[in-house]
């Protein structure tokens, strides 16, 4: 839940949009520069190692899918 909150908060701050649709395309919503910032912030905050090259794989295009992917790495 914390991860979801962090990601949504980050996107809200960057896009100035209070309502984030989890089915939206992640890179259509965030600039590539902000996406890299988000990845680094998540790694630091949750002490994670995220395989970034996987992050843009076809099944991670939606914000919701990205959240689940990060949570999965947190649990493991």
């Amino acid at each position: 839940m914390l991860i979801q909150q962090s990601i949504i908060h980050f996107i809200e701050e960057k896009t100035h949009c209070p309502l984030i649709d989890l089915t939206d395309n992640l890179l259509g919503t965030l600039k590539s520069f902000d996406f890299m910032l988000l990845m680094l912030e998540l790694e630091e905050k949750f002490n994670l190692k995220l395989p970034f090259e996987q992050a843009l794989a076809t099944n991670l295009r939606q914000i919701g899918e990205f959240i689940s992917w990060v949570e999965l790495h947190h649990e493991s």
Partner: peptide, 25 residues
């Protein structure tokens, strides 16, 4: 472009980026 760059970066590429222009970053 961005996903290709990331993939290449993950595959031990040597990536040269011109970074002397203005960008709001």
């Amino acid at each position: 472009a961005f996903s290709e760059l990331l993939t290449r970066a993950g595959n031990n590429a040597y990536i040269s980026l011109h970074c002397d222009l203005y960008a709001n970053q």
